[in-house]
Structures are given as C-alpha cells and as structure tokens.
Amino acid sequence: MAKPMTKTQLVAALAEEMGTDKKSAGAALEAVCALITSEVSAGGAVTLPGVGKIYCRERPERMVRNPATGEQIKKEADKVVKMTIAKALKDSVNG
C-alpha cells in the first residue's frame, strides 16, 4: 500500500493543477476544510462530486466492554462523522 499524501504534497499538487502558487492553493484547501467542518458539525452534509458524501450520524447510548477488565460500561449517545464513497471513485479504483 502506498504512503498517504501529506498536506504539503496535496497543496503542491493542487497548486500545479490550479496553475497558481502554493500559498493560494493552501488557502483554498483550508477554506474547503473549514467549510466542510462547519457544515458537518452543524448537522448537515457535504457532497464532493466524484469523491463522496461526508455527514454526521448520531449513535444511541449503548453498552461496551472494557477489553482489559471485561467490565461492561454504559457509553453515552454520541455523534460520529461518516463518509460514503462515490460510485465514480470506486469504479476508477477498481477498473
């Protein structure tokens, strides 16, 4: 498995793709990340065309087990961020 792309590599590739400098590309990336964070934390969802949909889902209260002691603990309800991958991305990876 290949190593994941770092933020620096992503900004450099984005700058090259956009035909702009790294500072502008970094600002664009930060703006997109901030927009996604604010929308998902407010309970909304963001669809990135060709990539997938990022959304927040609520998990109910449940019983979990401490693996070290085997003790059952009640875990409070919480929220988790999920991502559904777009079919176009799955197809490009598999075919």
Rank of each mutant, 00 (worst) to 15 (best):
N94L: 02
K23Q: 03
L35C: 13
S41Y: 06
I54Q: 07
R65L: 01
A42L: 10
R59A: 02
A86K: 10
K7Y: 01
P67Q: 03
D78L: 14
K87L: 11
E39W: 05
A28C: 11
V51F: 09
E17P: 10
R59D: 02
K87N: 03
K53L: 07
P49Y: 06
E76V: 13
S41N: 14
V64P: 13
V51K: 10
E30W: 09
M18I: 12
M63C: 07
M1Q: 13
V32A: 07
A12Y: 06
E30Y: 08
V40Q: 06
E17Q: 14
G19P: 03
V80I: 13
I36R: 11
P67S: 00
K74D: 01
C56T: 14
G19C: 01
A31D: 02
E16K: 15
V11L: 03
V80P: 09
A15L: 10
L48M: 08
A31S: 07
V64R: 14
Y55P: 01
R59Y: 01
I73Y: 05
K22E: 05
K87E: 04
M5L: 13
T20W: 09
D91M: 08
A42M: 13
A28T: 09
S41F: 05
E16W: 09
R57W: 05
R62G: 03
K23W: 02
G43H: 00
I54V: 02
E39G: 05
Y55T: 10
P49D: 02
